[in-house]
């Protein structure tokens, strides 16, 4: 287990394109021990990046090194890495225990039975270990795949959307497990398109948007950047002009304009205050509100803001 603070994974000016489509464009970052969250909307290039980090896919340009060595076709390195891909397919005919065992055997695990039991206990699936995986729920399949990822006690864990299908209790257990591994000095890369999922565990965040590294660093700094961004809120009422006039005087409102369909688009840098003041102003002016909807609460818009910024 490595305890130094040297980068364990180095991604150096990496690009990957498929024909004319650029999936990853000139991305550079280092990953050190601890939990690193790879965050980005669906289709941002996270999975392609992870596949290059694990050596499953080749780079079109640049270099990926793990422990200072090129990862591609370096099968000796694979024994130090545990990878859980986003694909949830399992060998349905195989019992969970047999799956973990075969993965352990392929990775040269000594004292295999003990390692298999330990891995399955970690994901709390002993009771179902001797059932065919075809009978598992989605969450159980994910947990058994995680057990197979952990069976050889890897120094690096690369997890692509690992919480898909997990219930809240499983999520909490999984996050505890990751924190424990990180405390042991392991390097964990966790990919997700859900902001909160990464926020709860990651020490460092890499934001990937449109195949580019949009931002990186500690979560608090990135979160602060997100909180400062102005939000668009669409308001439908029975008196848009009167409501616009009332809202424009608020400190929480940066700008207001009326769409051709009669809806008001409010730009606010303090949406929390706006959500309190908006109904009060409407009530005071006897204006009926039919609809209030945030227009850019999605992660895509957050990333869009960061990229533009």
């Amino acid at each position: 287990m490595t305890n130094n603070v040297e980068p364990v994974i180095r991604v150096d000016h990496v690009s990957r394109w498929f024909g004319s489509v650029v999936a990853v464009s000139d991305v550079t970052f280092d990953i050190k021990p601890g939990i690193t969250g790879l965050l980005g909307p669906n289709g941002a290039g996270k999975t392609t990046l992870l596949r290059m980090i694990t050596g499953l896919a080749d780079v079109s340009d640049g270099a990926v090194t793990v422990f200072g060595q090129p990862i591609r076709n370096n099968h000796a390195l694979f024994g130090r890495i545990g990878v859980m891909s986003e694909h949830e397919t399992v060998y349905g005919f195989m019992k969970g225990r047999d799956f973990v065992k075969i993965m352990g055997r392929l990775r040269g695990v000594s004292d295999l039975d003990a390692a298999v039991d330990r891995a399955i206990e970690l994901v709390d699936l002993m009771a179902a270990a001797d059932r065919p995986m075809g009978t598992y729920s989605r969450g159980m399949r994910q947990r058994m795949r995680l057990a197979a990822t952990l069976v050889h006690d890897p120094e690096i864990l690369i997890l692509d959307e690992p919480l898909n299908g997990a219930d809240p209790v499983q999520r909490a257990n999984f996050q505890d497990l990751l924190r424990r591994f990180a405390a042991e000095g392991r390097t964990i890369v966790l990919s997700s398109h859900i902001l909160e999922e990464v926020e709860q565990v990651a020490d460092t965040v890499l934001l990937i948007v449109n195949g580019k590294l949009a931002a990186s660093g500690g979560f608090r700094a990135i979160r602060a950047a997100l909180d400062k961004r102005p939000y668009h809120v669409r308001v439908v009422s029975d008196s848009p002009r009167e409501l616009a006039a009332a809202l424009v005087t608020l400190d929480s409102v940066d700008a207001v304009h009326i769409d051709p369909d009669g809806a008001i688009m409010v730009l606010s840098s303090n949406v929390r205050v706006l959500q309190i003041e908006l109904p009060l102003r409407a009530d005071a002016a006897s204006i009926r509100l039919f609809r209030v909807e945030p227009m850019d609460d999605s992660l895509e818009s957050v990333f869009g803001y960061l990229v533009e910024g």
């Binding site: 499953l56 000796a76 694979f78 060998y91």
Partner: peptide, 15 residues
């Protein structure tokens, strides 16, 4: 097709 080939290719064994 079902994307389970990575289970084997990520093992530390030559191709």
């Amino acid at each position: 097709e079902d994307r389970t080939l990575a289970n084997l290719t990520l093992a530390p064994i030559p191709r």
